[in-house]
Design a protein around this nucleic acid. Structure first.
Length: 225
DNA sequence: TCATTAAATTGTT
DNA sequence: AACAATTTAATGA
């Protein structure tokens, strides 16, 4: 029987390329935890002690200003890893990470992360690709937020969740409710619903009950209204 | 397998 | 924010 963690490793390129003893060490040192919807995966300000992977479900990385305004930076679906930035810089975590629905999360301890960094070239390559991909995403996000309306923001958000480099093996279909799309984009559910219908009418996605299927990922990521 | 019910999600105001 | 309609999941005959 393969555990959910093993399945996570199987579709993570860095873990795939470890040898048996390396993988065994990572497996034994990694902690898996269930997080209920709206539960905290990591909290802002805490000392960073782990690199985090989403095995199942969906989490969002966000921050609250001291005025209480909630800002969401990005969502991370199953298959995604995050937190390497804070680990590398050895600083307190800058963001809250909250589960959007019941999720299964894995924590790779700092020491294990360091050891991978020191011993595995595949791991280093993976981080390089991931960091680069994220940088591209955030630059594009800033550009879009300044220039485009809600429909395009939703389009971008969905396209991000389907990034094959960051979240491999998830296919074209993602289970995500429209209220979750609203949380990720900072829009009301009603507006998110409207945007999804616009995008469906443009033939970029198919809207289903409790999920969406991407028909044209490329078109979605360059949608401008 | 089918029918009934509760819960979740969606479409609309 | 509230409502009704729709879909899914769970339950038991």
């Amino acid at each position: 029987m393969t555990s959910p963690l093993d399945q996570m490793f199987e579709r993570s390129r860095w873990a795939e390329q470890l040898d048996a003893s390396q993988r065994e060490r990572v497996r034994s040192e990694t902690v898996v935890r269930e997080v209920a919807a709206n539960g905290l995966v990591c909290r802002k300000g805490e000392t960073v002690e782990a690199w985090v992977g989403v095995i199942e479900g969906l989490v969002k990385i966000s921050s609250v200003s001291f005025e209480g305004k909630l800002v969401t930076f990005t969502g991370v679906p199953a298959g995604g890893w995050f937190g390497e930035g804070s680990l590398l810089k050895d600083e307190p975590r800058r963001y809250d990470v909250i589960a959007l629905r019941d999720s299964l999360v894995s924590y790779v301890p700092r020491a294990t992360f360091q050891w991978l960094l020191d011993t595995s070239i595949a791991f280093n390559r993976f981080l390089l690709v991931q960091l680069n991909e994220r940088l591209g995403q955030f630059i594009a996000t800033v550009e879009y937020e300044r220039l485009l309306g809600p429909d395009a923001r939703v389009a971008r958000c969905i396209a991000q969740l389907f990034n094959p480099l960051l979240y491999p093996g998830s296919g074209r279909q993602l289970r995500i409710s429209q209220s979750e799309v609203g949380y990720l984009t900072g829009l009301s559910r009603q507006r998110a619903n409207q945007a999804l219908q616009t995008l469906e009418a443009s033939g970029l996605i198919r809207v289903e009950y409790g999920g969406i299927t991407v028909a044209d990922l490329d078109g979605l990521s360059r949608y401008e209204g």
